[in-house]
Amino acid sequence: MFDDFLASDLSEVEQAVRAAAAAEIMPRYRQLAAHEIVEKKGPHDLVTTADRQAEEHLTASLTALLPGSVVVGEEGVHADPGLLAHLGGDAPVWIVDPVDGTRQFVHGDAGFATLVALAHHGELLASWTYAPAQDLMAVARRGRGAFLDGVPLRAGAPEPGKPLEVAISHYDFTTDHEKRALAGLRTDGVAPRPCGSAGLEYLNIARGRLDAIAFTWENAWDHAAGLLLVAEAGGGSATLSGEPYRIAGGNALPFTAARNEATVRHILGLLAAAG
């Protein structure tokens, strides 16, 4: 059953992602009431009714498409951290961030996305990055490339002689050690800036509009879809130890993704030297 599912065109997954956004997210876009917004860990860590309802919608539709699969989603894990064990389990797992960039969504900004990735035994197999307010759908499949609205994506290489544009974690979510490491990017030849929606920053790398990211948190729902998208667009990624990012966690942080392997190595060198 699983092999047959992977051999299909997976267009039903894209339809499920679009349907969840149309039913649960976009009707609330710029229409949220105060009681529909809740702080989780602070003013930069928000959850809304749209997040919860969209994840419930996706959980039902994705597991129906692939019987025997499980969902590990941001809101589900917040309620039951034990769900994280599925990332290292035997069942196919859907990794879901219903509204990546909730802060932007709350403020009426279009820079948010719905992220879905399919993994098995720790390997990323397919991903969907959908920005409903911008009507952008990026899809990646392991070994088959990355596409934005059907057009192939190629990350390319940074422009020689131009400072590297790097999106970095918000300092409110970093330890002292991570702050020191990220400070290594404040150097000649690098132009760091705060990140927006992680999923859309990965899309920017895959499109060649951003040179790299450096993130200090490892939640799989923020990174799984984008890491496969970047890889299939020709980019690379690695953790501070030089190892691949593991969706089940335990990664050496910060980690980076970039338009090419040379940039990955350069960013890691700067992070390691400063940290």
Results as ranks from 00 to 15, higher is better:
12 E>T: 14
201 E>A: 14
238 A>F: 01
92 P>K: 02
17 V>R: 10
122 G>Q: 03
149 D>P: 10
168 I>R: 04
10 L>Q: 07
109 D>Y: 05
148 L>Q: 05
72 V>K: 00
222 D>G: 03
137 M>N: 14
137 M>L: 15
118 L>D: 04
173 F>R: 04
226 G>P: 10
91 A>C: 03
148 L>V: 13
36 E>Q: 15
151 V>I: 13
76 G>V: 10
91 A>K: 08
66 L>A: 01
248 A>V: 07
265 R>D: 08
81 P>S: 12
226 G>T: 13
84 L>K: 15
80 D>C: 13
246 R>L: 14
90 D>S: 15
10 L>M: 14
119 A>R: 00
76 G>S: 07
70 V>C: 03
87 L>V: 09
220 A>G: 03
89 G>A: 13
255 F>Q: 01
224 A>Q: 06
233 A>R: 02
123 E>G: 01
160 P>C: 04
257 A>E: 07
39 E>M: 07
220 A>S: 05
159 E>K: 04
226 G>C: 06
62 L>H: 06
129 T>C: 14
155 A>P: 01
119 A>F: 02
40 K>V: 15
103 R>F: 03
6 L>W: 10
204 N>C: 12
119 A>V: 03
100 D>Y: 14
242 G>F: 09
196 G>N: 04
161 G>W: 06
212 A>T: 04
181 A>V: 00
128 W>R: 09
182 L>M: 06
187 T>K: 06
246 R>Q: 11
268 L>A: 02
161 G>C: 05
248 A>I: 03
106 V>G: 01
153 L>D: 02
223 H>Q: 11
137 M>R: 15
251 N>H: 05
163 P>Y: 06
233 A>F: 06
235 G>S: 06
26 M>I: 10
253 L>Q: 00
99 V>P: 10
210 L>E: 00
71 V>K: 06
214 A>L: 02
44 H>P: 00
161 G>I: 04
59 T>N: 08
186 R>F: 11
249 G>E: 08
186 R>A: 04
211 D>G: 05
223 H>N: 14
92 P>Q: 00
238 A>T: 02
268 L>N: 02
275 G>F: 05
8 S>G: 15
254 P>I: 05
262 A>D: 13
271 L>K: 01
132 P>C: 12
9 D>R: 07
213 I>N: 05
215 F>L: 15
135 D>I: 10
238 A>V: 03
165 E>P: 00
2 F>Q: 06
9 D>A: 09
50 A>G: 13
5 F>C: 02
31 Q>D: 12
155 A>S: 15
130 Y>H: 15
270 L>C: 05
54 A>L: 13
100 D>N: 09
12 E>D: 14
145 G>F: 11
56 E>C: 01
67 P>N: 07
194 P>T: 12
214 A>G: 03
255 F>T: 00
52 R>V: 15
203 L>Y: 12
129 T>Q: 14
73 G>I: 03
210 L>R: 05
211 D>F: 12
261 E>P: 11
109 D>M: 09
169 S>W: 00
199 G>E: 13
4 D>V: 01
126 A>E: 14
198 A>I: 15
4 D>R: 07
155 A>F: 12
55 E>P: 12
216 T>R: 02
217 W>V: 02
275 G>D: 00
